[in-house]
């Protein structure tokens, strides 16, 4: 396991922790419609998708270089 990968994932974890907690979350706590849904609903699901995407990019990178 490369150290860089570990730190990237650790960083992503902290970013996710930040984005999915107060006070950042409360900034979007509105019922205003946005993109067919409300601001908070859109924010949560878009962020969620982004985190999944970044996790996939980090985890799946360099798969071929791995020793096994």
């Amino acid at each position: 396991m490369t150290n860089d990968k570990v730190f990237k994932l650790l960083g992503l974890f902290f970013v996710a922790l930040l984005l999915f907690n107060f006070p950042i979350l409360s900034l979007f706590s509105e019922g205003r419609p946005m993109g067919g849904a409300t601001v908070i609903f859109t924010y949560i699901f878009l962020t969620w998708g982004a985190i999944i995407l970044f996790t996939a990019l980090i985890v799946e990178s360099n798969q071929n270089n791995k020793p096994r």
């Binding site: 396991m1 996710a16 970044f54």
Partner: peptide, 23 residues
């Protein structure tokens, strides 16, 4: 309302760490 979400947000937050922790 959105109070049901933390139960699934938690795993979403911690999942990047699985590669380190769970492994």
């Amino acid at each position: 309302g959105l109070g049901f979400l933390p139960t699934y947000i938690g795993p979403a937050i911690v999942a990047p760490l699985w590669w380190v922790l769970l492994k």
